[in-house]
Amino acid sequence: MSVHDTLLNRLKRGCETMAYPKGPAPALPDRHGGALKVEAAKCDASCSACVTVCPTEAIARPAGKPVALDLGRCIFCAECVTVCPTKAITQSNDHRMAVRQREDLVLGDTGKEQVRLAQALDEKLRRLFGRSLKLRQVSAAGCNACEADTNVLGTIGWDLGRFGIQFVASPRHADGLLITGPVSKNMELALKKTYIALPEPRIVIALGACAIAGGPFIGHPQHHNGASGLVPVDLFIPGCPPHPLTILDGLLRLLDRLGESDARR
């Protein structure tokens, strides 16, 4: 490719990086649905249609207690949305789903109908990582969809590099781990070794339903149902796979880089 072609192409197409977060977020695909909203108050007394239909047993309705949908286990198949007679479970079309605490993904109870979004890192870590965060990605039995959508964040439309966030080859250069996959027993040692190779202070991000709770393979004896049992997780991003916008929102939320237009709830 000649120099002339490169410059011409650049001038013709201009900068293809999206304005977000300084502009509005790109729209989710219209059939995506986004995060779920669960209003337990709307449930019929004896109905448990959603519980039976959920493939990952993410929904529970213990006797005398309101229905609880664990978005960390959810693979977003929307079966529960289709089957609910009272529209207690709905799709919010909201791309924001990242949380700091695992419990913040359990939806249903009054005041907890939606995801309690992630707070930023504490002052010390924010000063350290706010402008420069290097992550080592570890695929611990991920199916390659979460990995693909993480890769997409490096492309010219999303351009993760402009925030100072970069994926590095060596764990010694990294500040955090981005884990995908339910963490198979065969990957346990590799994950632990990679975690230890990260210099302190370090953070861990669990990306996708598998890394949070095992995903579609929940309960299989060949893996650990997610990363929480092995390493301390600082950020959970649900999805199967999470849309790149959800991942980006989660990362920026963690670093408090989102700006006023999309302030934390």
Partner: peptide, 28 residues
């Protein structure tokens, strides 16, 4: 290089932040 690939790219002073951060991090 980033601009020539039609993307925004890291800021020119990003390397300062990187070096500053590495100086404050622990070593393995």
């Amino acid at each position: 290089k980033a601009k020539l690939q039609n993307r925004r790219g890291p800021r020119p002073w990003q390397v300062y932040f990187d070096i500053a951060k590495f100086l404050r991090k622990d070593m393995v």
